[in-house]
Amino acid sequence: MSRNPRAPTSRGVNHDIFDRTARRHRRDRAVPGYRAHDFLRAAMLDGIADRLAIVTRGFDAILDLGCFDSGFAAPPDARVVRCDAGLGFARAAGGVQADEDRLPFADGAFDLVVSAGVLDQVNDLPGALALARRALKPDGLFLAAFVGAGSLPRLRAALREAEPEPPTARIHPQIDVRSAGDLLVRAGFALPVADVETLDVGYSDLGRLLGDLRGMAATNLLRNRAPLSATTLAAAAAAFAAQADRDGRIRERFDIVFLTGWAPDPSQPKPAKRGSAGASLAAALGKRE
């Protein structure tokens, strides 16, 4: 399922997709045991580090947007500001608490913004990307990663089988790579690139998967969510187990969308035509001196 950019809000009307209060509480709940469930974000940080390694210039002022309990491994001489929507993670990382679409930072405060594992839970994603771009100095770099469309197909199938009527939203709407690239353009980034990497993880049962999602603060945050009944949960567990391979493992899939963009600057090459956000990553990163 693709998630469309949020429509403009009307004064006095709450158009939030996600429950902001629940999100903060879920993140605080995840703090003590997060390190046992951080494999997905670790893969995102590795991908961000690979992309950053192509860039030959240094960065002195860095914003780590969605830092969890430790955050992006910045160069030792860089000034790093950590930011997280959860107070517990913000405190653990020595950072500040703020939602990604309500940032408190001044325009042009950073020359690098990184974000791993949070943008798929932001109510106003176009606004969050625009704020990240505004927080960058001219020719500053934005690198992000989040769970995108195509993820969790086994869980989706199990929930559909366990609860066919009436349909209930149990998993967040997800953004496909093409829409993600368009959002970079809409936010005003130059040289935008959006690409996908897939991570397959084996599970013995549904409980293990749900435990990981809970441990990484990635359970259902929709404002209109409804609890799973014991009967539905048992049926979903059986449907999930029925998808096991010969070795008894259920291979669940996570599609990680990576975003790369630059704050506009006159020194940059002319931007590509609209709709070409999937252009060469090396072309976008490698020539930035």
Rank of each mutant, 00 (worst) to 15 (best):
R133F: 12
R133N: 14
R133D: 15
R134G: 08
R134P: 02
R134C: 14
A135C: 15
L136H: 01
L136R: 00
L136C: 00
P138Y: 03
P138H: 12
P138F: 01
L141R: 05
L141P: 06
F142H: 12
F142D: 01
F142P: 03
A144R: 00
V147S: 02
V147F: 02
G148T: 04
A149D: 11
A149C: 12
A149N: 00
G150T: 07
G150M: 08
L152K: 01
L152A: 04
L152C: 02
R154V: 06
A157W: 13
A157N: 13
A158L: 00
E161S: 10
A162R: 00
E163D: 10
P164W: 07
P164I: 10
E165T: 12
P167S: 07
T168R: 14
T168H: 08
T168P: 00
A169T: 05
A169Y: 04
R170A: 06
I171Q: 01
H172G: 06
Q174D: 06
Q174C: 03
I175G: 03
I175K: 05
G181I: 04
L184F: 06
L184G: 04
R186N: 05
G188Y: 01
F189T: 00
A190I: 02
A190S: 07
A190V: 01
L191S: 07
L191E: 01
P192K: 01
D195L: 10
D195M: 07
V196G: 05
V196D: 12
L199P: 06
D200R: 05
D200V: 06
V201F: 05
G202F: 05
S204N: 07
L206P: 00
G207K: 08
R208K: 15
L209A: 06
L209W: 08
L209E: 09
L213K: 12
R214C: 03
R214W: 08
R214T: 06
M216W: 09
A218R: 04
L221W: 02
L221K: 09
L222R: 08
L222A: 05
A226Q: 14
L228V: 10
L228M: 13
S229P: 06
A230E: 15
T232F: 03
L233H: 12
L233A: 11
A234H: 15
A234F: 13
A235Q: 08
A237T: 15
A238S: 15
A239W: 08
A241G: 13
A241M: 12
A241V: 14
A242E: 11
A242N: 10
A242W: 12
A244E: 02
D245F: 00
R246F: 10
R246Y: 07
R246C: 12
D247H: 12
I250H: 08
R251S: 14
E252H: 00
R253V: 15
R253S: 15
F254I: 11
D255R: 13
I256S: 09
F258W: 09
L259K: 05
L259P: 05
L259I: 11
G261E: 09
A263C: 08
P264Q: 09
P264N: 08
D265K: 02
P266T: 07
S267G: 14
K270G: 04
P271I: 03
A272L: 10
K273A: 14
K273S: 11
R274Q: 11
G275K: 09
G275S: 11
S276W: 07
S276V: 03
A279L: 03
A279P: 00
S280F: 06
